[in-house]
Simulated assay, not measured.
Amino acid sequence: MRRRYTATADAAPGLAESSRYEPDGKQKGGPRSRLVEAIAVLLLARPMRAAEIAQVLGKPTRYVSSYLSYWRTRGLFDYENGFWVLTPAGEDFAKNILEREMNSRVAQYAALARQIASSSVEHNSLAMKHKSSLTPRQQSGEFQPFIAQLTINADNKSQEHLLASCSRALLEDLEIDEDERQVLELLLEHYRRWGMTYMYLDQLERELEADRIWLMSILRSLQTKGLVYLYNDRRLGMRVGLSKKIKNAISACIRAIS
Rank of each mutant, 00 (worst) to 15 (best):
Met1Val: 14
Arg4Val: 14
Thr6Glu: 01
Asp10Tyr: 12
Arg20Phe: 15
Asp24Phe: 13
Asp24Met: 11
Lys28Gln: 03
Gly30Ser: 04
Ser33Tyr: 05
Ser33Ala: 13
Leu35Cys: 10
Val36Ser: 04
Glu37Pro: 10
Ala38Ile: 02
Val41Met: 01
Val41Ile: 13
Leu43Phe: 08
Arg46Met: 07
Ala50Pro: 06
Glu52Trp: 13
Gly58Val: 14
Tyr67Glu: 02
Leu76Trp: 05
Asp78Tyr: 13
Asn81Lys: 14
Thr87Phe: 00
Phe93Lys: 03
Leu98Trp: 06
Asn103Leu: 14
Ser104Ile: 11
Ala110Asn: 08
Gln115Thr: 10
Ser120Met: 10
Val121Leu: 11
Met128Val: 07
Ser133Leu: 07
Arg137Met: 09
Ser140Val: 12
Glu142Ser: 14
Phe143Glu: 00
Phe146Pro: 03
Ile152Glu: 00
Ser158Cys: 05
Ala164Lys: 13
Ala164Arg: 13
Cys166Glu: 08
Cys166Met: 12
Asp173Ser: 14
Arg181Thr: 09
Leu184Lys: 05
Leu186Pro: 04
Tyr191Gly: 13
Arg192Cys: 07
Gln203Thr: 11
Leu204Lys: 05
Arg206Pro: 03
Arg206Phe: 14
Glu209Ile: 12
Ile213Ser: 04
Leu215Asn: 08
Arg235Thr: 13
Leu242Lys: 10
Asn248Leu: 06
Ala252Gln: 01
Cys253Ile: 10
Ile254Lys: 03
Ala256Asn: 01
